[in-house]
């Protein structure tokens, strides 16, 4: 048997969650998008770049590709999706740390990307998005003409 199962609930956790949800609903970056039971924005995103492209990576375990939508418009990347909690008769939760529900994350990119050429890959719960920079935003090597 699992011991101390009653100790996982605390009225202060409940209050903390409520306050975070209220604060989060004013967050312009996520548009209030969140998953139940998740404090803060979801998913967390890492972004990096090289001369030709921006790359975004997010960890979204348990989200299947058919439950995922992505848009890259101008300099804005949107990741939408949902994860469903396990449900069933005779099923009791002793601990629920994994958020469930719908989420939307909107990230403003530093440069415009070529929306036609954006590619995404989902493997073992890791989403990787490759976004070639729009022609105007690419690093160009400038040669100095000699007089």
């Amino acid at each position: 048997m699992f011991r101390n199962r009653m100790s996982t609930w605390s009225p202060f956790d409940e209050l903390h969650r409520e306050i975070n949800q209220i604060l989060e609903s004013f967050n312009p970056v996520t548009n209030g998008g969140r998953m139940a039971g998740w404090l803060g924005t979801f998913p967390a995103v890492n972004i990096w770049e090289d001369g030709d492209a921006l790359y975004a990576e997010a960890e979204i375990p348990g989200v299947r590709s058919e439950d995922l939508e992505m848009y890259a418009v101008g300099n804005e990347l949107t990741i939408k999706g949902q994860r469903t909690a396990r449900q069933g008769e005779n099923l009791t939760y002793h601990r629920q740390e994994r958020g469930a529900g719908e989420f939307t994350r909107i990230v403003t990119l530093p440069v415009e990307v070529d929306a036609e050429k954006v590619e995404a890959n989902l493997c073992n719960g890791v989403l990787t998005i490759t976004m070639p920079k729009a022609a105007a935003a690419r690093a160009r090597k400038i040669t100095v003409k000699k007089a």
């Binding site: 099923l91 601990r95 740390e97 994994r98």
Partner: peptide, 17 residues
Amino acid sequence: DILETPEEFLILADMPG
């Protein structure tokens, strides 16, 4: 997540990558 049914305990762990 830790769940229980009459037959078993079920642990779901997020371990991406």
